[in-house]
Amino acid sequence: MFTGIIETLGTIKSIEKENENIHVTINSSITEELKIDQSVAHNGICLTVVKIENNNYTVTAIKETIEKTNLGKWQTNDVVNLERAMKLGDRLDGHIVQGHVDQTGICKKIEDAGGSIYFTFEYDKSKSNITIEKGSITVNGVSLTVVNSKENEFSVAIIPYTLEHTNFKEFKVGTVVNLEFDVIGKYVARIEQLRN
């Protein structure tokens, strides 16, 4: 379980394919605090640490994860948002994030709003995921509040601190991002589907 509050950034040092799996090695300032078998969210994807060596650690992604996320597009030297699992009893500063990406989205627009920056994302509505105005959304692991909610599109307003401390500063129009929709909203949507 995560909160969507990014702890630090990591840099991808290597990517190795083995059968249907991908092993990703990352350099990060938190590596020395990690343990084998620990869960870490990478751009919102919960992955397990399988190896630690110096300031680098390795995680493995299976086919299902690769197909549902932007992980297959990662390249060496890409920067990823990192968050370790929350500790029981800590403050929940973001919202309840599972680290299970529902689908990807595409950055459609970036607008300077004089103190914040609006990012607009579009997603495939056939997956039955929804957003609501002032509801929560996780974009590349970052807990954000939805503005301008539409059927298959939403915007978020990013403050300068978030821009500086996440990989949002790397986004361009066309960037593919990981989306995790609010877990409560997903249950409500599923109940409605079962009623119809």
Rank of each mutant, 00 (worst) to 15 (best):
F2R: 10
F2S: 02
T3P: 01
I6Y: 01
I6M: 06
L9N: 04
I12A: 03
I12H: 00
I15V: 14
K17M: 11
E18R: 12
N19G: 13
N21Q: 12
T25E: 13
S29G: 12
I30G: 04
N43W: 05
I45S: 13
C46D: 04
L47R: 11
L47I: 03
V49T: 09
V49R: 08
V50F: 09
I52A: 08
E53I: 14
N55K: 15
T60S: 14
T60Y: 09
A61L: 15
I62C: 04
E64T: 10
K68M: 04
L71S: 10
Q75V: 10
N77F: 11
N77S: 13
D78C: 09
D78A: 06
V79M: 13
V80F: 02
N81S: 02
N81T: 11
E83G: 08
A85Y: 05
A85N: 07
R91N: 12
H95F: 04
H95W: 05
I96A: 02
I96G: 00
Q98M: 14
G99S: 07
H100N: 01
Q103A: 09
K109T: 05
K109I: 10
I110A: 07
A113S: 15
G115T: 05
F119E: 05
T120V: 01
F121E: 10
Y123E: 09
Y123R: 10
N129Q: 10
I132E: 13
E133I: 02
K134C: 10
G135L: 07
G135M: 07
T138Q: 06
S143R: 05
L144H: 03
L144W: 10
T145C: 01
V147D: 06
S149K: 11
F154V: 03
Y161Q: 15
H165F: 12
F168R: 01
K172G: 02
V177F: 00
L179Y: 01
F181K: 06
K186W: 02
V188N: 05
R190C: 00
R190P: 04
Q193I: 09
L194N: 14
L194C: 02
R195A: 08
N196T: 12
